[in-house]
């Protein structure tokens, strides 16, 4: 009670997400041709730990407290994780998208949900092609179920985390046609 989003909100998110996917596909060639900074070293597809560090950052990956960044040097993406920029995700083929989703799912199975994780899960869902491959199908259902479990444990309903978990459950269930996992409209 109090967690479940309205049907209207869910339908809006599905429409926005669909528009984001169309824009991504329309401009994919443009972003693939963009130059990436030298410090953006995308891991190999099979490098699970490399992708976890790349997406979530050394700080979160190693759970070690690091000294605050020197403001003057700008953001250290190695420490905080590279955001899912279009110039990055547009370079990932479907096999890599599915592999990274699997790696982040295994992370999410044991670790808290964070904004960095949420942004990457959203970006990977945006890149997943339909019809879904069997392993992608199973992964996104696992993701929605895990979001539901984590949401149940959330004590503070007003948390941003609730909103993000609701969003992912909504997109998996209503955009990717996994209606049995959908939230009943409140």
């Amino acid at each position: 009670e109090g967690y479940s989003p309205t049907l209207k909100w869910q339908q809006q998110q599905v429409a926005h997400f669909s528009a984001v996917r169309q824009s991504l596909n329309k401009n994919r060639n443009h972003w693939q041709s963009q130059h990436l900074d030298s410090n953006v070293a995308m891991p190999k597809s099979e490098d699970e730990e490399g992708w976890k560090k790349f997406c979530l950052g050394e700080r979160l990956y190693s759970e070690i407290e690091m000294l605050p960044d020197n403001e003057n040097l700008g953001v250290d993406y190695i420490k905080v994780g590279f955001p899912p920029l279009l110039s990055i995700v547009s370079r990932m083929n479907q096999a890599t998208v599915t592999s990274v989703l699997e790696y982040l799912m295994s992370w999410f199975g044991e670790k808290p949900f964070t904004p960095e994780l949420g942004r990457w899960l959203y970006a990977l869902l945006a890149c997943l092609e339909k019809p879904l491959l069997p392993e992608a199908h199973s992964l996104i259902r696992q993701l929605a179920r895990r979001c539901s479990e984590v949401r149940l444990l959330e004590e503070n309903k007003n948390e941003e985390r609730i909103s993000a978990l609701n969003l992912i459950i909504c997109l998996v269930s209503r955009y990717f046609d996994q209606y049995d996992l959908a939230d009943e409209p409140s």
Binding site: V20, N27, P84, L85, Y122, N158, S163, A164
Partner: peptide, 27 residues
């Protein structure tokens, strides 16, 4: 013109996610 700005915004996916998350609270 908005379509052009679409092309040039490397952070479009991040903004879309943050906006969607914020919209739930507003709703």
């Amino acid at each position: 013109q908005s379509e052009d700005s679409d092309v040039w915004d490397d952070t479009a996916l991040i903004k879309a996610y943050d906006k969607a998350v914020a919209s739930f609270k507003d709703a």
